[in-house]
Design a protein around this nucleic acid. Sequence first.
DNA 1: GTCTATATACGGATAGAC
DNA 2: GTCTATCCGTATATAGAC
Lengths: 195, 195
Amino acid sequence: MARKQGSHSDITGPKVQAAAVRLIAQHGYAAVSMRQIAAEVGVQAGALYNYTPDKQSLLFDLMRDHLVSLLSAWQSEQKPSDAIARLEHFTRFHIRFHLSRADQVFVAYMELRNLTAENFSIIEDLRRDYEDALEAILRAGITEGVFATQDTRVATRALIAMLTGLSNWYRTDGALETERIEAIYLDLVRKAVSG
Amino acid sequence: MARKQGSHSDITGPKVQAAAVRLIAQHGYAAVSMRQIAAEVGVQAGALYNYTPDKQSLLFDLMRDHLVSLLSAWQSEQKPSDAIARLEHFTRFHIRFHLSRADQVFVAYMELRNLTAENFSIIEDLRRDYEDALEAILRAGITEGVFATQDTRVATRALIAMLTGLSNWYRTDGALETERIEAIYLDLVRKAVSG
DNA sequence: GTCTATATACGGATAGAC
DNA sequence: GTCTATCCGTATATAGAC
């Protein structure tokens, strides 16, 4: 750390992302300055522009990377065959993934307003892909006769809002174990769409 | 409107609040300047300081007023006696109140990070009061034997997150009528905590 | 109560040395 | 790749005239 100048591309790049997501989650995109992010990383503000063309791209990349890795993680999960098991699987997956990335989740949900129209559209498409995954499960369950909902799209959004809301108050170091939280939410989700 | 100077306290005061809540809902607190709010009201930036000591107070007042009027509206509702009817009543009340004040709801949920510690604490207390209202209903239903949840506090937060999430996508001029939306959510809520 | 003008600070982004 | 220095715009908030 004594060194004041030099090349650290491999190290600095990830550090910029990490510092940005943490600071933006805490204070909000508009309230965080490039100078703050730079200070957190341990460089001067000008150096950040070796890693992002501008502040907007920094935000967009954070959100896109989060959603892409969410979708990618979901796609590589082994899926059960019947709808009830698939719903339980989705619920557990969603809770675990989101609790393990509290800052990213927060940014991805709170900073949509600060995206340019073009970037917003891309992020919305990714989010829609994720909603489709849950909606497919609900539709399958209705076909199987084990679920009943009046509108699968609305129910999908309602369930995701319920599950994601957990990120707004639950911290993994809290009194309730994640296992227990999962059990509580599983019970709510299962019954909410039960036939 | 030709007039450039004069006293308009009764008119300007509410206009400042209205402009602030709309602009903050759209762009975020940190991204909105006092100059923007002033332009929306039709005065110069300096004039705003006749109505708020600073920008922080403007935000805090918006959020406090919203929550106080939410609690006040809820308290003046006539409550049914049995738990199932009370849950349905709460659900309908919540949806209607929140859909009729989309901007305030948005600000009250999204801008918590931008409150000072002291102001945040006050807002959190008000929110807790509202959560208590729903939790009391869930507890009553369990006592009556008509509801079953593993944890009333977690279930309360889950249900409120689900209901409030509606504000994030539903617009009253959308394809789905509010009546239908209420029916869909009522079904989900009722079943989620059913015994 | 509102205006104009301004004090003072900080913002994003760039240029050029090393 | 990072630094220092800087351009230029905008921010909150205040002072004093009307």
